[in-house]
């Protein structure tokens, strides 16, 4: 049965959640409760925080990097089944993987050439 192997995933999820919960509960039970205004300010090394609101507009360049990541993420997903059968049909698989990579590498070169990877 396939799903029994996923019992480990479930155990990991439960274990991970339990660790966080136990740590939070233990510190909640052990710590003294003395709230003050200074404790509510966001932590910034040494100084008072530069701005009160931690939410600000990010540079649009981050989005381009995210898009690049998504494209190559999809590429990897297509490669997983190919790698599985690589030993049985090596020539076709090799040609296909090379073609796929070269086409996407062309896109990466385009982005590079256009200066999309430059960080001013």
């Amino acid at each position: 049965m396939l799903q029994q192997e996923y019992l480990y995933v479930l155990i990991f999820i439960l274990g991970g959640s339990a660790m966080v919960l136990v740590a939070m509960l233990a510190s909640w039970a052990l710590r003294p409760s003395k709230p003050s205004k200074a404790k509510l300010t966001p932590y910034e090394c040494g100084e008072l925080p530069a701005q009160a609101d931690s939410y600000f507009q990010f540079n649009i360049r981050y989005y381009l990097f995210a898009l690049l990541f998504v494209v190559f993420d999809v590429e990897v997903v297509f490669f997983i089944p190919l790698v599985k059968v690589f030993n049985s049909i090596p020539v076709v698989a090799f040609i296909e993987i090379t073609f796929f990579t070269v086409v996407l590498a062309f896109g990466l070169v385009y982005a590079w050439k256009k200066g999309a990877l430059e960080w001013e």
């Binding site: 898009l67 494209v71 996407l104």
Partner: peptide, 20 residues
């Protein structure tokens, strides 16, 4: 499968173009 690679290439170039 080959067309998918072209599709991804189009997405890549389009994203770069718009961002620039």
């Amino acid at each position: 499968f080959d067309v998918v690679s072209i599709l991804l290439l189009v997405a890549l170039i389009g994203a770069t173009y718009i961002a620039k």
